[in-house]
Design a protein around this nucleic acid. Structure first.
Length: 743
RNA sequence: GAGCGAUUAGCUCAGCUGGUAGAGCGCUACAUUGACAUUGUAGAGGUCACAGGUUCAAGUCCUGUAUCGCUCACCA
């Protein structure tokens, strides 16, 4: 053997003479990857790193909203997905990870409206539809650029050539097509129903977008003829002419269903009708209530059951209508006190409970208090039976009679879609079973305009105008309508594209468990209904990233940590690892800066392991197969079994275990044991043993780099670039497309 | 009100189909200028929330209790 090299030998790259500095390498490396084209599976096939008939692996990125910037939750999502994608790409699969952003209609419009109002004190109607849309587009465009930049910083190996935006031309067309097809199947209908109306944003919102916020309000007991009724909302009571009680309530058995009585009410005497309905809870208060069908979903249902009149009391802006008599025109917030005063004068107030706490419906998308209203809206009917088209769903054949609900149940019940962690399967089923018709129209401007046309009371649903005099519905679609089509529309549906044929159903959907109902369920609904395919084979829910105290990160709490800060301080690799280790599927991830720092040290450890190894093998000629000692074989065995375990863990989505094992192996096995005990061997006189050990160390280094690459792409690729030329060439110039070590 | 989850070292959490309690961070002692803007070696620290049960054997399976958290629904 030749003479040994000192650590400062000129033969190993100078780069190793100082600690690993992520900032120095990351951006350039990302550019190298991107320019190589290997993020795109077509290029991988072209350049021979992937077989043209290899098994496909696809993930469509859950598109971040164009409302702002990425947070740690996005970072954790990107880390998980990039690990899966890089692993499968190295496995030689045709691997596609498709990026995009979401217009997030209501959230974005309300954000931009807010900005405009703050600066110019102008409301949307003063600005006009076209101008507002222009401004939202400008905002969305800027936000989109920020998001893409941040996504790249994390090392995400997304195929940017396939980038999609929910409002771009292809996606818009898909949404229109989906609407028309579902309308034609009678799955979309228009009807007057009780909906959640936001008087601030002047739009409906879906049930899932309503947050119930606890609030204290006085609870009033009023005399209503012979009865006592209670309410927190006296301003809705003007039109209450039905009094409801449970049919079995003994206290009121003298009153008959349909019986009419005269009662003195806010603005004078009215005729009230007795209604017996099981919705009235005898245990609650007096067991008697009056109803306001126009402004309560529950009351609406009671009124529907008995065919009762429904009258609007409050208008869309929250002001009282003429039915309120002298209170008409007043805003409900102001009117309440005056109404109570009047009731007291009339002696109709029995008592007031000041300490009453209840939950008030508010719009989670930054709006105000929800006022239920009956409005003519578009709905998706989840219980309507229809004839299934061509089907690849097991258990469902073409021309079977199905409902959207039954489809949604079937694909999960029969295991075609696997949900991880398992407990969310139960949450999903529970949600599907309780699903109501989905109100999909919104009275906002930013979004996909509903392809419905009106003329003289007639309605036509089609993509282009039916002709002169037809006016398009001014409403837009709920943002989740287009999101529900995401796996399909990004791959080119409704066209029969190669992408769609190859990559749909997608392999994995990876997202936060908080959007199971909004998104996951709706993609299943849309895809099964419109394509007869499931949208994805596996659902992997990651937890929510919380601060070190376990609190949810939110703007209002001001405890948001910015992934970019972490990347700047500790590098993208360390940031990624800190979001993976300890993050079992579905478990929330408490993130502390200490944790990120610890993984930065690990990157540096790997750096030094590489430096040591390269220094000690640089003079060896690896053309000969060495004769291994028993210990050599043992070291290689451990390496192989580690690779096998890690591969299994990744395939089972146990990334947290895989990352931890890789970390443990590299630091506490390879570095602490193997390298330490190799020092005397490498410096010994037995050239045969030295060579054999050099061979082993090279193997350990190369394999460790591959094994760690999905988790820490930057530092591993940086080191890979420093490996001797012949070593890289026997594999590939870029680590990201070398083959994963075989088990 | 219903459902789901958690309870294991000072902190954050692993512990998959039951077989002598683990990791990271922190702490203590010693060593080390070394491949390492340090690292290594050793160590302290746990009745695995509580009570029953199944079993040769229970953090692990079953039942119940307590506390905390989340989700959904209702609240006239």
């Amino acid at each position: 053997m030749n003479e040994k090299h000192a650590p400062d030998t000129p033969d190993i790259p100078d780069i190793f003479l100082k600690p690993y500095d992520p900032a120095e390498h990351e951006d350039a490396l990302y550019n190298t990857w991107e320019e190589s084209g290997f993020f795109n599976p077509d290029v991988c096939i072209e350049k021979g790193v992937t077989a043209a008939d290899a098994e496909p692996f696809s993930i469509v990125l859950p598109p971040p909203n164009v409302t702002g910037t990425l947070h740690m939750g996005h970072a954790s999502m990107l880390a998980v997905e990039d690990i899966l994608v890089r692993y499968n790409r190295m496995q030689g699969k045709r691997t596609l990870w498709l990026p995009g952003t979401d217009s997030a209609a209501l959230a974005t419009q309300s954000k931009v409206e807010g900005i405009i109002y703050k600066k110019e004190k102008k409301r949307r109607h003063e600005i006009g539809r076209e101008e507002l849309l222009k401004r939202i587009d400008t905002f969305a465009e800027a936000s989109k650029d920020t998001i893409i930049g941040q996504t790249k910083k994390l090392g995400s190996s997304l195929d940017w050539s396939r980038y999609a935006f929910t409002l771009d031309e292809t996606r818009y067309a898909a949404v229109m097509e989906a609407f028309v097809r579902m309308y034609d199947k009678d799955l979309i209908y228009r009807g007057a129903r009780s909906v959640n109306w936001d008087p601030n944003l002047q739009t409906t919102v879906s049930d899932d977008e309503v947050d119930y916020v606890e609030q204290g309000d006085p609870f009033y007991y009023f005399k209503y003829g012979p009865f006592t009724i209670g309410t927190v909302r006296p301003e809705t009571k003007f039109g209450d002419k039905y009094v409801v009680m449970h049919p079995d309530d003994e206290r009121y058995k003298e009153y008959m269903h349909g019986q009419q009585i005269e009662v003195e009410w806010i603005n004078g005497p009215i005729t009230a009708t007795i209604i017996k309905d099981e919705a009235a809870d005898p245990e609650m208060g007096s067991g008697v209530m009056t109803i306001t069908p126009w402004h309560s979903a529950v009351d609406f249902e009671i009124a529907e059951r008995h065919g009762l009149d429904k009258e609007q009391v409050i208008d869309e802006r929250g002001c009282l209508l003429p039915i309120a008599g002298e209170f008409a025109g007043q805003h409900i917030k102001k009117a309440r006190a005056a109404i109570i005063e009047r009731m007291q004068e009339k002696g109709l107030v029995e008592k007031i409970d000041e300490a009453y706490v209840h939950k008030v419906a508010t719009n989670s998308r930054g709006g105000g208090t929800i006022e239920p209203q009956i409005k003519e809206q578009w709905f998706i009917d989840v219980n309507k039976e229809f004839i299934m088209g061509p089907s690849e769903i097991s258990g469902v054949s073409e021309s079977d009679t199905v409902t959207l609900k039954s489809l949604m149940r079937t694909v999960v019940d029969n295991g075609q879609i696997d949900i991880l962690p398992e407990r969310f399967m139960r949450v999903y089923k529970h949600w599907v079973d309780n699903l109501h018709d989905w109100c999909i129209s919104r009275q906002i401007w930013y979004g996909h305009r509903i392809p419905a046309w009106f003329k003289d009371g007639e309605v036509k649903v089609q993509i282009t105008s039916p002709g002169d005099g037809w006016k398009q519905d001014s409403d837009t679609l709920d943002t989740w309508f287009s999101s529900g089509l995401w796996t399909m529309s990004t791959l080119g549906w409704p066209e029969e594209t190669d992408d769609f044929k190859t990559y749909h159903p997608t392999t994995v959907l990876e997202t936060g468990y908080d959007i199971l109902p909004f998104w996951v369920a709706r993609m299943i609904l849309m895809s099964t209904c419109l394509t007869g395919q499931i949208p994805f084979k596996n659902v992997y829910f990651h937890g929510l990233v919380r601060d070190e105290k376990g609190k949810k990160m939110s703007k209002s709490l001001g405890n948001i940590s910015d992934p970019l800060d972490m990347i700047e301080k500790y590098g993208a690799d360390a940031t990624r690892l800190s979001l993976i280790v300890g993050a079992a599927p579905g478990n929330d991830i408490p993130l502390s800066e200490n944790k990120v720092r610890a993984y930065k040290k690990f990157a540096n450890k790997l750096w030094n392991i590489s430096r040591f190894t390269l220094t000690n093998i640089i003079d060896a000629d690896f053309t000969q197969k060495p004769t291994h000692s028993d210990r050599d074989k043992e070291i290689l065995d451990t390496l192989r079994s580690t690779v096998a375990e890690i591969s299994d863990d990744i395939e089972n989505f146990n990334l947290y275990l895989a990352a931890e094992k890789a970390y443990h192996y590299v630091w506490h096995d390879l570095a602490d044991k193997v390298l330490e005990e190799s020092k005397p061997v490498l410096n010994g006189d037995d050239t045969e043993a030295t060579y054999a050990r050099q061979y082993v160390l090279r193997e350990c280094l190369v394999t460790s780099l591959k094994m760690l690459h999905p988790f820490m792409p930057y530092v591993t690729e940086t080191i890979w670039q420093q490996l001797p030329k012949e070593l890289k060439e026997s594999e590939h110039e870029l680590l990201m497309v070398t083959k994963w070590p075989s088990k």
